[in-house]
Design a protein around this nucleic acid. Sequence first.
DNA 1: TTGTACGCGTTATCAA
DNA 2: TTGATAACGCGTACAA
Lengths: 345, 345
Amino acid sequence: MITIKEIAQRLNMSTTTVSNVIHGKAGEVSEETRRRVEEFLKEVDYVPNINARNLAQNESKIIGLALKARVDKYENLIMDPFVAELIGGIEETIRNAGYFMMLYISRDTEKIMRHVSTWNVDGLILFGMLDDDGIRVSTKYKKPIVCLDTYSMEGLKHFTNVGLDDEQGAYEMVKYIISCGHQRIAFLSDNTKGVDLARLNGYKRALKEAGIEYSEKDFLKIRPASAEIEESLDEICHRALDYTAIMCVSDLYAVTLMSALTDRGIRVPEGISIAGFDDNMLGSLYRPALTTVHQDVKQKGVVAAETLLKKIRGEETEAQITLPTRLVIRDTVTKPRKSSFMGRF
Amino acid sequence: MITIKEIAQRLNMSTTTVSNVIHGKAGEVSEETRRRVEEFLKEVDYVPNINARNLAQNESKIIGLALKARVDKYENLIMDPFVAELIGGIEETIRNAGYFMMLYISRDTEKIMRHVSTWNVDGLILFGMLDDDGIRVSTKYKKPIVCLDTYSMEGLKHFTNVGLDDEQGAYEMVKYIISCGHQRIAFLSDNTKGVDLARLNGYKRALKEAGIEYSEKDFLKIRPASAEIEESLDEICHRALDYTAIMCVSDLYAVTLMSALTDRGIRVPEGISIAGFDDNMLGSLYRPALTTVHQDVKQKGVVAAETLLKKIRGEETEAQITLPTRLVIRDTVTKPRKSSFMGRF
DNA sequence: TTGTACGCGTTATCAA
DNA sequence: TTGATAACGCGTACAA
């Protein structure tokens, strides 16, 4: 690890000159010395010490990606294909802009904020925040923040949220399901907050518009904890028989449900129609291929990172960026079974 | 961002005392002052500046995770469920040990090494390295390195490789397939290097042991680039009719193949048996559920991180750690179809 | 038990 | 065009 000081010594010049060459301050240095220094830099393969640089400049070139893990969901958040794709988009964008990504996963907002302060990160991307987390964060951290899929940041000024038109996406899918002739349509999710709530609302709007009444029992709650999921699926498959279609809040749940139904001898889509949301590998590789609502997750990551970089440069950004969805019609939603035919298939 | 200096001023003491309290050097400081300082630290929510600390100590508390992306495979490496799970295991282990993870993805080994030097990372975990990459790395970087699934690091001293008994896993699966009565068994992969080669060798060993001859054409090469995959699958499905079972190098390919076969009216396992390797979500959620070789990917990440931490502490570690595999028998491998029955199903 | 002073590698200011 | 020197925040040897 050669330092500027050493280089200056060996070349018989001052550190300032070397530093000037490194930073291409052309006006400040003669052509001759510039050449000499540059050659030497190549030769010894000089790499700047970023700690020293950051200390001197009070910046870090680090962008923090903090994932707030949910206690009940995945034991390993990153295994969610959604999260994985998101990270890919973010990392690529950050890297191309000359920044670096530091990943931090925690259930504890406090810990996340300590981490962020410690590293003096230049900007922060948050995923999985709910309710008052945002407020807690904004009092501690004064640099730019971009949130992903967060529905509770309205009042907060220097935040931007990058989200999806979840409500509209679900609305359009359920409208399509209804147009296929379905009247008894359930909604499957594991909670009714944030993104899930928005999708639920879209579902309700489509029902209402078609004059179909919604009641509490049309909400099928899945318990994702691995210990409970089988029991949970048992109950859901049983209740599913009262419906001809189920709108699932995610592709993962749609595929999980289809497998469970298949195991119990109920065929999709002949026995029941299933729709997903997200459009990931899980649904496109399954057979029958899943009818779902598409969102471009990588793009979401890219937009989030780009917006954050803008903020860091001091440019103005919108407070809310909403990406569109698109219906992907494949094979799991068809005409409903004859309504007299209520047994197993 | 309050500094030690400020704290010392406000408390009318020296920075050394404050620093001593922070580092719990109990013997060096009176109970009274310790209490006073600690209270004040809480009050102002002191967070150390890690750049200054690292600069002073010449360490970074950063562990680099460098993924060498392959040009032809995923446009977004992290979308590989394998990679995602791996990262989860690594991040968790590193975080619990008080280190931080910096993720860097590149196709260019040089770039990876520059990045690593810049940040002065205390240790490095490498994934996706092939052939001479290891040598290039070891000349540049003198701190501890752990490789994952790398088959070409034999000679290199301060490396440890964490791998899997790929050969044995494939061997056992193919042996099982043969025990079900199959004689015509193909192998599907996209290359014959590293991990893929080891699995191919296991397949060959099982064939040989059973007195089944292997010929070049039994290797079905899939081309994963999205533009070519359909064409590729067309050819593979056609050639698949010559076999009663196909050993796939990964769950992803197994599921991809099953979908393609289903689309062409060939049923699994009635028409053809399929086996995978990895045991991830893709295979367990598919119906029929995939018979596959299990590996604990998260554990692999944990072991890699733990080994690296050991190396950083100066402890001895083995040069090669090989994790075991386990057969997961589900529904996609059964008795072969009658051999006269060669058409579509 | 506490304080002074210096070094870590870099950038920035200002003088030569 | 170049060079001395201070500053960034922290840790630590050594002095008091």
